[in-house]
């Protein structure tokens, strides 16, 4: 390899013979610039790049952790909300049942009152009617008695008798009682 490159090297315009890598004359130049390069890269990395990337990675880790925690939180909240919803639903159902029962009871009470009132009215009306009937009957009896007395008096007068009013009344009353 050294021989062939030697041949090639010598053809090059004024270039040092052999492998350029072994040209000691350029070593100080390369080492000098290399050291500067490495120092610059080291400072760029240690002062800017690496802390920044570390911060980014830490932030991402934090964000992910936070997001997972938040997700857990939201999940728990959703669970709670569901429980609350179920509870509300059950409460509402119970309330509805209560209201329905109450309404039913109220209506029943109202109905009872109305029925009672109606019954009372019916009773009162019946009593009134009975009283009226009784009055009418009474009136009828009196009228019958009167008619009977008058008739009896007329019959006695026609028979030619002279009837005393009070005697006939008593006789008619006795007969009617009897």
């Amino acid at each position: 390899m050294a021989d062939t490159t030697n041949a090639a090297g010598e053809v090059a315009l004024g270039a040092p013979p052999g492998m350029p890598q072994l040209d000691i004359g350029t070593f100080d130049n390369q080492v000098f610039w290399l050291l500067i390069t490495l120092v610059v890269i080291y400072f760029v990395l240690s002062r800017v790049a690496l802390p920044r990337i570390a911060a980014i990675l830490a932030e991402r880790q934090g964000t992910i952790t936070n997001d997972i925690a938040a997700a857990e939180d939201l999940k728990a909240k959703a669970h709670d909300a569901e429980a609350a919803y179920d509870k509300a639903l059950a409460d509402a159902r119970a309330e509805a049942q209560r209201i329905s029962a109450e309404t039913k009871a109220t209506i029943q009470a109202d109905l009872n009152v109305a029925i009672a009132k109606a019954d009372a009215e019916i009773a009162a009306r019946t009593a009134e009617s009975e009283k009226a009937i009784a009055e009418i009957r009474e009136g009828a009896m009196e009228a019958v008695a009167e008619v009977a007395k008058d008739t009896a008096m007329e019959i006695v007068a026609v028979m030619g008798g002279k009837a005393d009013q009070s005697t006939i009344d008593t006789a008619v009353s006795d007969r009617m009682k009897g």
Partner: peptide, 19 residues
């Protein structure tokens, strides 16, 4: 010249210039 690519030379100036 496969090795010519490795020659260290001044950026401004000729190949023969001192380094």
């Amino acid at each position: 010249h496969p090795m010519d690519q490795f020659i260290v030379k001044p950026l401004f100036g000729e190949i023969g210039d001192p380094v």
